[in-house]
Amino acid sequence: MTRVLLADFAHARSGDKGNSVNIGLFPYRDEDYYLIREKITAERVKEHFAGLVEGEVVRYEAPNIKAFNFVLRGALNGGASRSLRSDNLGKCFGANLLRMPVQID
């Protein structure tokens, strides 16, 4: 088992909608799509963002572009225009997801 970071094999972009944040997650190599499907579950993402995300996390699959979309509810301190945070638009959530450690066989 080797411990790597999600950032080592995937890139991501995040954006806001109301009080939700979405994160598109894209493996650099198509074959790592299955690794992400197995390891980066909605539950793990919810756990990872403890303290930043209050609501549920849902994962959607887009196999045609070998990508995943995570929707994080209650993630923006009320939404971009009522948030007190510096990252009021959730632009850094994608980068923050990439900090997740992943165990690889």
């Binding site: 890139h11 972009r13 954006g15 806001d16 909608k17 939700s20 979405n22 598109g24 894209f26 959607y60 699959e61 887009a62 196999p63 045609n64 572009i65 990508a67 979309n69 929707v71």
Partner: peptide
């Protein structure tokens, strides 16, 4: 691809006034 999912919720059902688009359908 990064822009394709930007500010999207369910990629299979992107709801707009004109159509519900399925972003999981096309080939790029």
């Amino acid at each position: 691809k990064e822009q394709m999912l930007y500010e999207v919720h369910d990629p299979a059902g992107y709801i707009t006034p004109d159509v519900v688009a399925d972003f999981t359908s096309p080939t790029l």
